[in-house]
Simulated assay, not measured.
Amino acid sequence: MSTSTSAHPVFDQAPATESFREAVLNGLRREQKQIPSKFLYDERGSKLFDKICELDEYYPTRTELAIMREHGAALAEAVGPEARLVEYGSGSSLKTRLLLERLGNDLAAYVPVDISKNHLLESAEALAEDYPSIPIQPVCADYTTAFDLPAPPRPARRTVGYYPGSTIGNFRREDARAFLAQIADTVGSDGGLLIGVDLKKDVEVLKAAYDDAEGVTAAFNKNLLRRMNRELDATFDLATFEHQVLWNEARGCIESHLHSTTAQSVSVAGESFAFEKGETIHTEDSHKYTLDEFSSLAARAGFDVESVWTDEQSYFSVQHCTVGNQTR
């Protein structure tokens, strides 16, 4: 299904609204209440995340941008000529623009994929205006599940996935492997992947990045409560929940929670849920990797890591992977 816009059609494969309802109810019924992090990114959530990316404490964005500026020619060479570039998650497109400028008119198509249709449209329209010679084919879909790619308007030599940021860290290790394997299936035997991978570092640096002084990350996390109130007739009192960040050494990840400051009962979609004082809703994981750890994970998903670019402090990496012959 496609939806017409002033610039181009949107290939609409958005999930039914019931999927949010089911995920929330199933998650809140668990002993450790949890909701998948992908539901943080409604329209308001996506815009708040863009603000997070501009914060001083949030090193991943500026570090990745610096890597891309310094190594842009090598990154474009890794993608190769006449490629179809599929971006998993359409953000503010700062990094995308750096890549598109390097790839130029030779790109067969740019396919941004995002679950937030309005945010996707805004990004796609802006890019279409600034890069009129590059075919842009936005796809509204939950990219963590299988979705169809539109046929490119001109022949593509290969398909390359693009997954910037540290979003791969939102997946548990085994889920990350399954997601990467899905990308490998999508891009095919001659395909590739450019991916941002956040690296392990001082814990205090990590905690500050996910709990900023201005409270933007807290607003981003608590926006999930707003969304449930709006879409699921929930009765969350935002004043009784706090944003909480923990470092889990055993799992190698930052955990984000919504912490109930009092004992209370909340209704969601007609179902009642009790919260003890101090009980949390686990909303997001941000796993960090060593280079060897990610290479091993990629191999189990069917990818070979061909090239790695990092900053001077080794805070962050951009990696180019190609589909290999490993057993998944």
Rank of each mutant, 00 (worst) to 15 (best):
L94T: 13
K51Y: 06
A83K: 09
E125F: 02
A109R: 09
L107Y: 10
G45H: 11
G80S: 10
P112C: 11
L94K: 15
V113M: 04
S92I: 01
D114P: 12
E101M: 02
L65S: 11
A141G: 07
L120R: 05
E122N: 12
E43R: 13
L55E: 12
A83M: 03
S46H: 06
S116K: 07
S93P: 00
L100N: 11
V79F: 08
Y58N: 03
G72E: 01
P112W: 06
I115C: 06
A109P: 06
H119R: 09
V139I: 09
E125Q: 14
S46D: 03
R102Y: 00
G89Q: 08
G45E: 09
A73Y: 01
E57P: 12
K95N: 06
P132A: 12
R102V: 00
H119A: 15
T63P: 02
Y110A: 03
C53I: 02
A83P: 03
G104W: 07
E101R: 14
I115H: 05
G89W: 05
Y88I: 13
E70N: 13
S90A: 15
R44E: 14
V111W: 08
R102Q: 15
M68I: 14
Y59Q: 02
L98H: 08
N105K: 10
I136Y: 07
R62A: 07
A126I: 01
E101I: 01
A74I: 03
R44W: 02
L94W: 01
A108G: 06
L85N: 08
L107H: 10
H71V: 00
E70T: 13
L75Q: 01
L98K: 04
P60F: 05
A76M: 02
Y58W: 10
D130Y: 00
G89L: 09
A73H: 09
I52C: 13
V111S: 08
R44N: 13
E122H: 11
L85I: 10
S133D: 15
E87H: 12
I136K: 07
G89I: 08
N118T: 13
P60L: 11
L107A: 09
Y58H: 04
A73W: 00
K47R: 15
T63A: 11
V111D: 03
S116P: 07
S93L: 02
E87M: 11
Y58K: 01
N105A: 14
L75C: 04
N105Y: 00
E57D: 14
G45T: 10
I115M: 14
D106P: 00
Q137M: 15
A128C: 10
T96H: 08
T96Q: 06
L65F: 01
A76N: 01
T63W: 03
E54N: 03
S133V: 04
L65G: 08
K47M: 12
R84L: 14
K51R: 15
N105S: 14
S123F: 08
L107P: 09
Y88E: 10
P132V: 12
E82M: 06
E77F: 01
R62Y: 12
I52T: 12
H119K: 12
F49Q: 04
G45Q: 11
I115T: 06
V113H: 01
K47T: 10
A124N: 06
